[in-house]
Computed example of a mutant assay.
Amino acid sequence: MQKYVEAMVGGGLLPEDIQTTRFSEHIVHFDENIAYGLGILKRSTFYGHNGSLPGFTTSMYHSPEKICTVIISFNSQLEDTIPDQLFARFVEILYGGDF
Rank of each mutant, 00 (worst) to 15 (best):
A7V: 07
H26T: 11
P64K: 08
R43L: 02
G96Q: 10
I93Y: 09
V70A: 01
T21W: 09
T58W: 03
F30T: 06
T69E: 04
L86Q: 00
T57P: 02
C68Q: 11
Q19V: 05
L53D: 14
L86G: 01
T20Q: 13
P83T: 11
F30M: 15
L41I: 11
P83C: 00
Y4W: 15
S63P: 07
G39P: 08
Y36G: 11
S63D: 04
P64A: 03
T21P: 12
L53W: 15
F46P: 02
R89I: 01
P64H: 12
I27P: 01
S24D: 10
I72Q: 11
E65Q: 12
V9F: 14
I67L: 14
C68K: 15
S59C: 05
L41E: 12
L94A: 09
H29R: 14
L13W: 05
L38D: 01
S52A: 13
N75R: 05
Q19G: 09
D80E: 14
L14S: 08
F56K: 09
S24I: 12
T21R: 15
V28Y: 13
G48H: 03
E32I: 04
G48A: 09
F46T: 02
G96D: 13
F46M: 05
G48R: 03
T21H: 12
K66F: 04
G39W: 07
D31C: 11
I18A: 08
Y36V: 05
R43F: 02
A88I: 00
D31S: 10
G37W: 07
M1Y: 05
P64V: 04
K42S: 06
I71A: 01
I34Q: 09
H29D: 04
F46C: 09
N33K: 11
I82F: 08
L13N: 07
Y61I: 00
M1S: 06
E32K: 15
L86P: 04
Q19A: 03
D17F: 01
T45A: 11
A88S: 02
A7S: 13
Y61C: 03
M60G: 10
H49G: 12
R43I: 05
I82S: 12
E79C: 06
L78R: 14
V28K: 13
I40M: 10
S76H: 12
E65A: 11
N50F: 02
A88V: 00
H26S: 07
S63W: 05
G37M: 06
T81S: 00
V91K: 00
E92V: 02
N50V: 12
P15E: 12
S24T: 15
I40Y: 07
S52Y: 04
F99N: 00
L78Q: 10
L86R: 03
F99L: 00
A7P: 11
V28W: 14
V28H: 09
K66M: 10
G51S: 12
N50E: 14
T57N: 13
S63L: 01
P15Y: 06
V70M: 04
S59I: 03
V9R: 13
D31R: 14
G96F: 06
K66W: 07
